[in-house]
Amino acid sequence: MQITLYLKGPLKKYGDNNDSLTIELEQDQVAINEIIEQLEIPASSISFIQINGEKSDSGTILMGGEIIVVNPRVAGG
């Protein structure tokens, strides 16, 4: 199965500065936080993850075909 990952703002560097990554997953039942770990993105650097546009739990199991956005922390406003 395949997913598309967007790493936003300063997190882009964890995906070799690509705007988006297409990731092929060999096994089923992969949770989004396993992918985050593989990319070596510190959990503390993430504000929240969106799956198909919705704020989602980092433990969400992927089914394939998802569009995932990983947002950095922001301060101030």
Binding site: P10, P42, S44, S45, P72
Partner: peptide
């Protein structure tokens, strides 16, 4: 990572 959103994107 905590602050560089300001440079990469800004508000």
């Amino acid at each position: 990572d905590d602050n560089m959103w300001a440079y990469s994107d800004g508000t």
